[in-house]
Simulated assay, not measured.
Amino acid sequence: MASLEVVRGELTDAHRDTRLNLQSVLENNSLTPEQRWGVAVGSAFAARNELIKKAMLHEARQALGEKADPVIEDARAAASLMGMNNVYYRFRHMVGKESYSTKRAGLRMNRLVQVLTNKVDFELVCLAVSAINGCETCVQAHEKVVIEGGLSEDQVHDAVRIASVVHAAAVGLES
């Protein structure tokens, strides 16, 4: 079973900072364990690297025990939904034509209201995945929801730090 130690061992000296950051961002921070591992797993799915995905799934199951399955399933759903939404809304933003902004998206997103953990944590994972996928509109929308839902800017910051390092590790493993 892949672990973070395996991932860290696979990162060459060119990726020393990523290796160190991969450990530090997942340690004590302002996130609950469920938030931390939801963001890490969702980010791993978004980063699309098999080793980092397996490692994050393994570590989440180790850290969360019986609480892991709903967190993992929500992270999986968030990564998939943002994979769709980030492309669509990034296109609308980038093309900059009002005519596209007035068109109905017509994309099913029922899973957004059928979360297994809680709405705010799900939105936090969506925010992290949207940051990886580079969708300004989605990042702003999800940040607003999580702040209004009671999370702090420190929690948002920590989630995006995790997303950035998970993505960097995936890039490092591929390079």
Rank of each mutant, 00 (worst) to 15 (best):
E5D: 11
V6P: 08
V7Y: 00
R8P: 00
R8D: 08
G9T: 00
G9Y: 07
E10P: 12
E10R: 14
L11F: 08
T12C: 11
A14P: 10
D17N: 14
D17H: 13
R19H: 07
L20W: 15
L20A: 15
L20G: 15
L20P: 12
L22R: 00
L22V: 06
S24Y: 11
N29L: 00
N29E: 06
N29W: 07
S30D: 08
L31R: 07
T32A: 05
E34G: 04
Q35R: 04
Q35A: 00
Q35I: 07
Q35G: 04
Q35K: 02
R36G: 04
G38S: 01
A40L: 00
V41M: 01
V41T: 02
V41F: 01
A44M: 00
F45Y: 11
F45S: 01
F45Q: 05
A46F: 02
R48N: 09
N49T: 03
E50C: 13
L51P: 06
I52F: 03
A55P: 05
L57R: 00
L57Y: 04
H58M: 14
E59H: 00
E59W: 03
R61G: 08
A63C: 06
L64N: 03
L64C: 03
D69S: 14
I72M: 07
I72H: 01
E73D: 12
E73R: 13
D74V: 08
D74Y: 03
A75T: 09
A75G: 05
R76N: 10
A77N: 12
A77Y: 08
A78G: 03
A78C: 05
A78V: 06
L81R: 04
M82T: 07
M84V: 13
M84N: 14
N85W: 14
N85Y: 14
N86T: 10
Y88N: 09
Y88K: 10
Y89V: 03
Y89G: 05
R90P: 02
F91V: 08
R92G: 05
H93W: 13
H93P: 04
V95L: 09
K97R: 14
S99K: 14
Y100N: 10
Y100L: 09
S101F: 13
K103H: 14
K103G: 13
K103T: 14
K103Q: 15
R104F: 13
R104H: 12
L107Q: 10
L107Y: 11
R108K: 15
V113K: 15
V115C: 10
V115Q: 11
L116Q: 10
T117I: 01
N118K: 05
N118A: 10
K119N: 13
K119I: 06
V120Q: 03
D121R: 04
E123M: 09
L124H: 01
L124D: 04
L124W: 06
V125R: 05
C126M: 12
C126R: 02
V129Y: 05
S130E: 07
I132P: 04
I132D: 01
G134I: 07
G134N: 09
C135I: 00
C138L: 01
C138G: 07
C138D: 08
V139I: 14
V139H: 08
V139L: 09
Q140R: 15
A141H: 12
H142C: 04
K144G: 09
K144Q: 12
V145A: 09
V145M: 12
I147A: 07
I147V: 11
G149N: 03
G150V: 04
G150T: 06
